[in-house]
Design a protein around this nucleic acid. Structure first.
Lengths: 203, 203
DNA sequence: AGCATAATTAAACGTTGTTTAATATTCAAG
DNA sequence: CTTGAATATTAAACAACGTTTAATTATGCT
């Protein structure tokens, strides 16, 4: 039996999250189970339930980690270009690249649905907000004069679109990418949408 | 015990699909289970497994039904306007409206992931192809001179975008729609993207 | 009527998330 | 130190899940 002095509560917590992330990376989110995680960290399920409310809580923590990783990469890409439009293209490409590189982790984030009885925690929502804040700042640079509402709308429209391409690209096989690579789709979307949206603002 | 003369194989098949659709509509795809479906049609699980390979097969049939319903509605909307651009806007709006109206059914279609050991059946893929064919025909009307490749790319880009908006809207985790309605996002996406894409073809 | 065929069921298996009571460990007070 | 309260950990249980099995029941054919 593992002794309680072997690991602190905090250590246990992060060990479980790490194990969950490993399982997701190897088998996808469907492969995650309380028993499997427990076994991987050398404890039993009961101990796991001392650190996490339920399995959703655990997966949510693993997914939050993924979101943070992604945000870090996006921020690097964001800085990689000075031209505002090019910056948005780079950002979208980085988003797609992350989805491709960390397919299962990324899928876990956006496929995992929690029961309506279990509302999304604030600390998790904060990650998503940070993501959209980055996008909005990029869009704002393209049209500094436009209203906050307008910028928010364009950001959400654009990023929903980028997100949609990533979903249909990585997850399902809605289209074979022999015709057009996902990257070219993303480029097409960002350039054309922002092109017309910026022009609208100058009319 | 239900007698086998009570219902033909075909009746059983469609009874099970109907029951599945009802459960999805009421409780979402998470509420579907073999036992629940079996009980609702007055048989036991074993009988269900005589009509369907596994639970994925059953859900797939229910989802195919949903896709057909959606396609029918989209076709009506497609005809509702003569102007090619307006037609695409209507099409996208109809897609969003369906996603809103049949939230759980629509979510079931796009959240259900089948194991990689179980490839998507042709009859299911055919539904998706029909959907994209409709979209492509609308895009082609906007730029008849452009290459098949180009039209396919634009169609997929655009519809991935529309799809993404619907996902983030109905899941409504990502943004509160008090700023901009999903409908306005969809309109914005379709108009601006096609605007610039069509212009590019005329350069 | 009787036999073969097929449909249906009840029961089982292994898995899941979660809870429970019992046990083991820690920590503080005497 | 020892004892006792507090807590961590475990093993076992529960209900529900997908799926398979053997046994039973209904059908169709000769």
């Amino acid at each position: 039996m593992a002794r309680r002095s072997d690991h602190t509560r905090e250590e246990l917590h992060s060990m479980a999250i790490d194990a969950t992330r490993t399982i997701i990376a190897q088998e996808g989110i469907e492969g995650v189970s309380a028993r499997k995680v427990a076994q991987q960290i050398g404890y039993t399920v009961g101990t796991l339930y001392q650190s996490f409310e339920n399995i959703h809580d655990l997966v949510l923590h693993a997914n939050a980690f993924t979101l943070s990783e992604m945000l870090a990469e996006l921020e690097v890409s964001f800085q990689s270009s000075r031209d505002p439009l090019q910056r948005m293209v780079k950002l979208a490409e980085a988003y797609l690249r992350f989805a491709e590189t960390h397919q299962r982790q990324w899928a876990a984030v956006f496929r995992h649905s929690l029961p309506e009885s279990y509302p999304m925690p604030d600390w998790y929502q904060a990650r998503i907000d940070a993501l959209f804040a980055l996008i909005e700042s990029g869009v704002r640079a393209l049209a500094p004069k436009r209203s906050r509402q307008s910028i928010q709308g364009a950001s959400r429209t654009l990023w929903s679109g980028v997100h949609g391409i990533c979903i249909l690209h990585t997850g399902d096989k809605l289209f074979s990418n022999r015709i057009a690579s996902a990257q070219s789709l993303v480029q097409s979307l960002v350039k054309h949408y922002l092109n017309s949206w910026v022009a609208e603002g100058k009319r």
